[in-house]
Simulated scan of single mutants.
Amino acid sequence: MTSSTSALPSAIDVSTFDHTPSYCEENVYYLCKKLCMIGAAETNGSDLFVVFISNEKKQIPLWHQKASARADGIILWDYHVICIQRSGEGNAPHKVWDLDSSLTFPTPLDQYVSEAIRPSFQLFPEYKRLFRVVHAPIFLRFFASDRRHMRDAVGNWISQPPTWEPIVAEDGTVHNLDEYIRVSTTDVLTDIEDDSIQSLFSQKFGLVASESQLEDLFSFIS
């Protein structure tokens, strides 16, 4: 039996979730687990999707980010990770859970796309964002990070790590973060159709969508 999300409170405070700056992939890993635990998502996480945002240059602009020093919150990440929760009820919006965003928490997907991603903003091609979408139940089984990407050439921390232990995958893998971050325009879906959507629920590294496909993908999933 899975829990229902229909009786949820209208807002959940962001302080409910653990957050370590610069470790968005681990923050989202534990966010998914906690959403399931507190009844804000299905108990098996089947309504949750982990989304890695990056591109071939590893330079992606996002707005309304708390780490930004600018009034509009724009920052250039090498990659970012969010959780999107599929709506299970009528016309209710899909939700974006972004612990690093200054927007409402969670944010309706259409608002997040409009205000944080801003696809209408004219960007040079090298800044166009790609989205690796992974079904949370698969991600929680297979994701692993030993945090090697956060050490400099002599082994010092670039940013202090979380207090919890590094995440090890169910199969014993200790690091595969790079495979989740790595995206290419050649990986992007050529068409959103039944076969593509079904593979999302079986592939370890999910599917890659373009900016113009992200909302359509979740409309199709629902």
Rank of each mutant, 00 (worst) to 15 (best):
F52R: 04
S114T: 15
C83G: 11
F49P: 10
L177G: 01
D216C: 10
C83K: 08
I82L: 11
L140A: 02
D194H: 09
K57T: 09
V154G: 02
V96C: 02
L207A: 05
V14L: 12
F49C: 11
L214R: 09
S46G: 14
A41C: 07
S4H: 09
L103Y: 08
S210I: 02
D72N: 10
K95A: 01
H64W: 11
T190F: 00
P108T: 12
S159I: 04
Q59C: 06
L217T: 06
G39K: 05
I84N: 07
A153M: 06
N156W: 05
E42H: 15
L35Q: 04
S212F: 01
A92I: 08
S184F: 03
L123F: 06
S54A: 09
R118H: 13
N27W: 01
F121N: 09
F105L: 07
Q160T: 07
S3Q: 13
K204E: 08
I117H: 12
L130S: 07
N44A: 11
I117R: 12
F49Q: 09
T186E: 08
D191L: 15
D18W: 12
P106L: 00
P108D: 12
I167R: 02
Y29C: 07
I181C: 02
L8E: 08
K34T: 08
N44Q: 09
Q111V: 12
F105S: 04
V96Q: 01
D152M: 07
I117A: 06
A71M: 13
Y23D: 09
W97V: 00
W157K: 10
W97I: 00
S54N: 03
S6D: 15
I167E: 03
E89V: 07
S68Q: 09
H19N: 14
D110P: 10
T104R: 08
M1C: 11
P61I: 09
D171K: 03
L76Y: 11
I75K: 05
F205S: 00
